[in-house]
């Protein structure tokens, strides 16, 4: 069990990576990446059973993670690299020509840690369900994790998949919604009111938990609870409350940072708030 402080330090370094990567190419999605960095750090550094140095597509005997909202790729790449999936130096190629670190995650370039392309929203939950069903056929008791944006829940395929997982009792599946209440065009309440999300997922047959996604202690506590709830006939949904842009004061809670790169000055201001803990790439 990695200590809370170590996980927080890791997430702080991930936030530096995110900002530097996006700034370097003046493109990318910092807001959601910063907000979800704590949760995905906890998954890869503490929660999941995995073999980073021996990546296989099938992941037999391992837990797996699917990032359905692929636009937060900078966050995922940083965590994958720093967890040992591929060289950290490769983060410097993000979104550049001939890079394996495409704007949105892809298997096309053979990047270790990625199992399916994501970016066009709403597809990852279905894929995760399929992988969970494959594991069930193989008698593999490991868990499939997913992360989705709250705006992504506008997509109909999410609800097709939610209905399926509830009806078919896909119970080695823990899905997390990054509930920052922001999407590109503004607050989710304005763009497309999501209503009572917890009640909706419960009505689809899911076991629903609430979590503060920017509090490492709460993440570990709730995810342990989620894990304990698997294998009991219901998929698990974690409604993860976060702030878009978490960790950088002038980005926090503002939807304009969904897909805007920081300027030179903004990068300097942001990095000043995030000490270099593990060494920049």
């Amino acid at each position: 069990m990695t200590e809370i402080k170590q996980l927080q330090d890791f997430a702080t370094q991930v936030r530096r990576d995110i900002l530097r990567m996006i700034h370097a190419v003046s493109s990318g999605h910092p807001g959601g990446s910063l907000g979800a960095a704590d949760f995905v750090t906890a998954l890869y550094q503490n929660i999941m059973d995995q073999s980073p140095s021996d990546f296989t597509m099938e992941a037999k005997g391992e837990d797996v993670f699917y990032l359905s909202n692929g636009h937060t790729s900078a966050m995922w790449y940083s965590i994958l690299a720093r967890s040992g999936y591929f060289p950290i130096a490769e983060l410097g190629t993000f979104r550049k020509i001939n890079s394996r670190l495409q704007g949105h995650p892809t298997t096309a370039e053979g990047l270790e840690g990625i199992r399916v392309a994501s970016g066009s929203l709403g597809q990852g939950l279905s894929v995760a369900i399929g992988h969970a069903q494959a594991k069930k056929l193989d008698g593999d008791n490991h868990i499939v994790y997913t992360l989705h944006g709250d705006g992504e829940l506008d997509e109909g395929q999410i609800w097709e998949a939610a209905m399926y997982a509830g009806a078919k009792k896909v119970d080695k599946l823990i899905s997390t919604i990054d509930y920052n209440k922001k999407q590109i065009d503004g607050p989710t309440d304005v763009v497309m009111n999501l209503g009572d999300l917890g009640a909706k997922w419960e009505a689809f047959g899911w076991h629903v938990l609430q979590m503060n996604g920017n509090d490492m202690s709460d993440i570990l506590k709730v995810m342990a609870e989620a894990k304990a709830a698997t294998g009991k006939g219901k998929p698990i949904l974690v409604l993860m409350h976060t702030q878009m842009g978490y960790g950088v004061d002038f980005m926090m809670g503002d939807h304009k940072w969904h897909g805007t790169a920081p300027s030179d000055q903004q990068l300097a201001d942001a990095l000043a708030q995030l000490p270099e803990t593990l060494g920049d790439y």
Partner: peptide, 9 residues
């Protein structure tokens, strides 16, 4: 999507 996940597995 489920078919894709089954193939990955």
């Amino acid at each position: 999507g489920i078919a894709t996940g089954l193939a990955i597995g």
